[in-house]
Design a protein around this nucleic acid. Sequence first.
DNA 1: TGAATAGTGTCTCTGAGACAGTATTAT
DNA 2: ATAATACTGTCTCAGAGACACTATTCA
Lengths: 264, 264
Amino acid sequence: MNEHRKEVDTSPEAKAYKAKKYRTPDGVPADIVMFTLTKKERKTVTKTLPIRELKVMLIRRKSWPCAGMWALPGGFCRESESIYDAAKRELKEETGVDGGHLEYLGVYSTPGRDPRGWIISHAFFALVEEWMLESRQAADDAGEVGLFGIEEALNDLELAFDHRDIIRDAYMRIQKQMLHSTIARQFLPEQFTLSELYQVIQTVVPEFSEPNFIRKITSTRSRQGILEEVRDENGKPLSSNQYSQRPAQLYRFTDYAPLLSIYT
Amino acid sequence: MNEHRKEVDTSPEAKAYKAKKYRTPDGVPADIVMFTLTKKERKTVTKTLPIRELKVMLIRRKSWPCAGMWALPGGFCRESESIYDAAKRELKEETGVDGGHLEYLGVYSTPGRDPRGWIISHAFFALVEEWMLESRQAADDAGEVGLFGIEEALNDLELAFDHRDIIRDAYMRIQKQMLHSTIARQFLPEQFTLSELYQVIQTVVPEFSEPNFIRKITSTRSRQGILEEVRDENGKPLSSNQYSQRPAQLYRFTDYAPLLSIYT
DNA sequence: TGAATAGTGTCTCTGAGACAGTATTAT
DNA sequence: ATAATACTGTCTCAGAGACACTATTCA
């Protein structure tokens, strides 16, 4: 509804409407906080879950302003596209891939945030797979593209503009989303074990702690519905022993999204 | 942290930086969906809760474009202020009051959404009290300012630009917030009865239905903490019989905000 | 066999959910 | 007394939370 496509308005009022002589913004970029969950095999005797880490992709700025600092990938929005389209385009340019979760984060417009002028930035965050970032890393000089642990990025890096604020906000948002929605699926294969799911949640939200996680997720009626057991054609439960001695039941997310309320 | 105040950058790079000749936006307004909950006494024999309704304030546009249509109040952002500041200023101009809950909703940037040019609108929603809107209504001609029920606004009104989309999004957002946070307090006096709270929630989220609401809110350990009983100096529970024969215990919100999770 | 991870049995306590019953007040 | 709203008693069943126990596999 309300599809406002670009049309030329030829009414007399439109012609009479004088372009305002007000100061207008100098640019409206979309910046993207690209999260990925790295997986690193642990060298142990027995099978075990890989080490996972939440990482952010940053680019070292080459030119003024903030030359040499780390910055979020981004680019200016064009008149012919929406801000979301600009972010999608940017994400594709960075990864070469269309996929991945892309979500609007917010607007950053503090006066003076960009020395180039009146630049109003729109932040997004994306959840991508690690391999999607490799082409970008290969295309550039080493040292120009970096994958940083979220805490390292927030605490140890010199970041351009107000990108530290943006990354902090994105981190808080992804943590909230991790517990309120099923975006964990973005960091998991289609089929996964409950240990993997638990590990993914804990990697993004370190405070998350649920002894009896398996028991709860499988037994609670209210939670029933967000996950379902994977079965083969004959209805036999499928399991995987990729990460453990004893095979573990595989699950997948359903389309069901529960409603949360502080009052019930 | 990262306070980017406006400063003049006098570095050689800044001087060398040519203003881009790219097309830049023609304006960046902040539009506000102002919600209020009207209260109307019911004419019954006995005391009873008033009728509450969720309303949206709209303004009839006087000039091109969309002259004669209903539109959200709003105004263009200036270079010296953030978008949020612009919204706050706008809210104050409309209500004459500083108070009220003001929250960012999102950006609306579909190409062609505004015939005046490349106009990127930032939507906010505000929760104000009914009396705050009266000065605005008095200042204008009758018929230029309107308070509409949310469903009426969405279904029966001819709305300017993409304001129907914005109002719909704001409605969904306020419903979510009503269940996820304690913004219900914005629509209630500092002390209120549980029936009032229940009515407020139901007014904003008609689907919300909790038989045993009182029982749950007062007995559940996990919910304990968002509300507390009001007591006088001597520790005696305070109650009100404003809306009922039998006096009802008064409650107030605490500062506690519970964490929600689909997994626990 | 023992180690490592997955999952179950079981017990206790709390809360949900339903609904009848009691309490307090106005008329 | 009656009506209207605000609770409370009580019963049943489900889930939380803890922790010992069993299951499956690998070395």
